[in-house]
Design a protein around this nucleic acid. Structure first.
Lengths: 348, 348
DNA sequence: GAAAATTATAGAAGCGCTTCGATAAATCAA
DNA sequence: TTGATTTATCGAAGCGCTTCTATAATTTTC
C-alpha cells in the first residue's frame, strides 16, 4: 500500500555481493546442497543475518517447481464438530509442517461433495506438493486426488491401499476389554453405532477377539449397535435404554466412543444405576468432556496431535523420496496405525 | 515424483500461440485489465478452456509481488476449543476467500506468546498480503503485525483503533433484557465471568442500559460475576449456586454466554428449580449445545460464519484499496459490529 | 606423477508470469 | 484537417530464485 519508508527488499543478489560470492553459492548455502567451503559458508551466513535476508517463497517456488505447501482436506462438518478431534489433528500437522518448512493450506469440502464442482482450488490449481485428507470424504474426491498425481496420505480413514494413518482400533479394543476382564467382569457389553465406519468396526473386532480369547463362545451376545446412527451422546442414551431393558444385565460396557459412553452414563443416572459400582463403563477417544463427566470417564486415549504430525512427516517422506531407513513405514506397506493408551479414571 | 505420463504444463505462452495473441494480451484477459477487443478476448478465453490452462500461482506472485494469501492468526486454545466458535469464523473466511481468490494460511500461536520467538512464519517471511487476527492475542504479536506494515483486521477483539469486526454485544444485551421485560419479568439478573473481556463487558453494558431504561435505579443489584474465571459451564454452575442462595430471587437471568447458562440450568435442575416456569434463562452465542439442552436454550445467536466472511471482505477491500462506496465501513471508522438475533426456544 | 575423482566457485539460462513502453489504428475535439 | 485521446496489440525486461554447465583447484588413485 501507500508506504513512505519502503525498505528495499533484500534479495539473494544483495547477499551474494555482500558476502563476495555468487548467487549460486548463496543458494547452495541456503539449501544445504552442493559443495561450499566452510569459510565461504560462514561469510554467507553472516551476511544473511546482517542483511536480514529472507528468501522469497514465490521466486523459489517458481524456479524449483515446488510450492512448499501441503493441502489439508477435511469435511466441513468434521471441521466444525463440537468435539475438536480433527482440529487437533490439524494442529499436529501444522506444528510438524513448521519443522519441514511447509505451509498448510486448509481446505474444507462440503459434506455432499460433487465431483468437479466442489474440487478444492488447491487441487485444481495444483499449488500443493502433497495432500493430507482427514476423515472420511467422498470417494469421488479421493479419485480426483489420485488422478491428480499429487502424493497424498489419508488420516483416520482407509481407502483402497493408499498410505494412511489410523488409530490402532483393534488392539485398543482388546486392551479395554482385557482390562475389564482383569477386574473380574464377566458380563461385558459392547455399544456402538455407525458400524460401517472402519474405526468403529475395528473397535468391535478388538472386543470380539478379546472375548473369544477369554473363552466366550457367543461374542455377539452382548453387542448393542445402532448401525446407521452416528455415534453421538443422544444415540448412546437410546442404546443404553435397550441395554438396560434387556434380560442379560451386563456389569461392564465398552463403548465405541466417548459420546456414546457419556450418553449411556446419562441414561444410567436417570435409572439410578450407579457407575462404576453397578456398571463399569469404558469409552474411546478421550474427548474433553471425559475429564469432566461424573464419574470421570475411563477411556482409550487417542493421540490426535501425534496423528497429524505423523501424517505430515510421512507425506514429507513421500515427497522427498528419500528412502528413510528410520521410517515407520515398511517398504511396500504405507499403512501406519498409531497406538493408544488406556486412561483409567473413575467409570471403570 | 516419478511419473511416466507427465502432462506438460500448459503455460500462458501456449495459450497465446493457440489464440494467436501475445502473452501480454492473454495476461490482460486473465486479469481483466487494459484494453482487449471482444473478439480477441473470446478467442483467448476459448483457448484457455480448450487447453485447460490454469495460471501458475508462483509465477504470478513473483511477477506481481503479491502472494494472494491471507494469514489467519488464532490462539491455539481458541482453535481447539470444544465449542467451534473460531473455527466457524475461520470457515466463513475460507469461504469468502474463494470468492476473492485468496488462499488462507492458518497459523496458530501459543497462548503464552513470546515476541520474536513465536512470530508466525507467514509474518516473518511476509508471504501474505493481509492478516486476520481472531480473538484476543498477545499485545506483542499485535505490535509485530502492526510494525510489519501488512494490513490486518481484528475479529472479535479490539485493540487501539485498528480495523475490527465485533459482535454488537451492547444491542444484543439490550434486546435480550427487553424481551424478558416484555414477558413481564421484573427481577432480572445478569450472570457473567471474565468481565475484562470486551465482549462480556459489552453484554453487561447492554443489560445495564436496558434496565436503566426500564426504570431500575440500581442496575447492579442483580449482577453476579466471577470476574477472573473463564465463562465455562463449571463457572456457570458455581455462580448459579450463589444466585440461588441470595436473598433476592430473580425470575429471569441473562447469562453472558451459553456455557454459563447451561451450567446455571444444570444447577437449577439439581435444586429442583423449573425452567422456564420458575426461572427464565437467556444465553449468548447460540452454541451447538443450546439446541440440545433440556429445556432448549433461548439465546442470542451470533453469526460466526458471517463474521469471518466480513473480515475477509473488508481485508480484501483494504488490500485492493478501492474506495468502495458500498462498503460497510464508513470512511475513517474501520470498526464494524455485526448484529445478532434473539433465538427464542424453551428456556425463556 | 599422470589420469580420475572430488571439491569449490562463478556465470547464465530459465521458471511463468506481469507490466512497461512502443507502435499503430481508430476515435475524438476544435 | 490536424493534433490529442482512446483503444488495441505486441515485444521485452525483469520479478528472485534454482540449477545446469563450465572452469579451476585440490585431492585421490594405482
Amino acid at each position: 500500500m501507500n508506504k513512505s519508508k519502503i525498505k528495499k527488499k533484500v534479495t539473494i543478489k544483495d547477499v551474494a555481493s555482500h558476502a563476495n560470492a555468487s548467487m549460486s553459492t548463496v543458494s547452495m548455502v541456503v539449501n544445504r546442497k552442493g559443495y561450499v567451503s566452510d569459510e565461504k559458508r560462514k561469510d554467507i551466513l553472516s551476511s544473511i543475518r546482517e542483511l536480514n535476508y529472507v528468501p522469497s517463497a514465490s521466486a523459489r517456488n517458481l524456479a524449483s517447481n515446488r510450492t512448499n505447501n501441503i493441502g489439508f482436506i477435511l469435511r466441513e462438518s468434521h471441521f466444525t464438530l463440537s468435539e475438536p478431534f480433527y482440529t487437533r489433528i490439524f494442529l499436529g500437522t501444522e506444528f510438524e509442517a513448521k519443522n519441514h518448512n511447509y505451509y498448510v493450506l486448509l481446505s474444507t469440502v462440503t459434506d455432499n461433495y460433487e465431483k468437479e464442482i466442489d474440487t478444492p482450488r488447491l487441487l485444481k490449481e495444483r499449488n500443493v506438493d502433497g495432500i493430507i485428507i482427514a476423515g472420511k470424504v467422498d470417494d469421488g474426491l479421493l479419485q480426483e486426488v489420485e488422478d491428480s498425481g499429487i502424493p497424498f496420505v489419508l488420516v483416520d480413514y482407509q481407502y483402497k491401499s493408499y498410505p494412511c494413518i489410523t488409530v490402532d482400533n483393534i488392539n485398543a479394543g482388546i486392551k479395554a476389554v482385557r482390562y475389564l476382564i482383569e477386574k473380574r467382569h464377566t458380563e461385558i457389553a459392547f455399544v456402538g453405532a455407525d458400524i460401517k465406519h472402519p474405526s468403529i468396526s475395528g473397535r468391535l473386532e478388538g472386543y470380539q477377539l478379546a472375548m473369544l480369547k477369554a473363552g466366550y463362545k457367543d461374542v455377539n451376545d452382548f453387542v448393542f449397535i445402532a448401525e446407521d446412527d452416528s455415534p453421538t451422546l443422544q444415540t448412546g442414551f437410546r442404546i443404553a435404554e435397550k441395554v438396560f431393558d434387556s434380560l442379560k444385565k451386563p456389569t461392564a460396557v465398552f463403548c465405541a466412543n466417548d459420546a456414546l459412553a457419556l450418553g449411556l452414563m446419562e441414561c444410567a443416572k436417570h435409572r439410578g444405576i450407579n457407575i462404576p459400582e453397578d456398571l463399569a463403563v469404558i469409552g474411546f477417544d478421550d474427548v474433553e468432556g471425559a475429564k469432566f463427566s461424573s464419574p470421570k470417564l475411563t477411556t482409550v486415549r487417542v493421540f490426535k496431535e501425534q496423528i497429524g504430525e505423523l501424517a505430515l512427516s510421512h507425506l514429507a517422506e513421500l515427497l522427498e523420496d528419500i528412502p528413510n531407513k528410520d521410517s515407520k513405514f515398511e517398504r511396500s506397506n504405507h499403512m501406519l496405525t498409531v497406538p493408544t493408551e488406556l486412561v483409567i479414571r473413575e467409570s471403570a
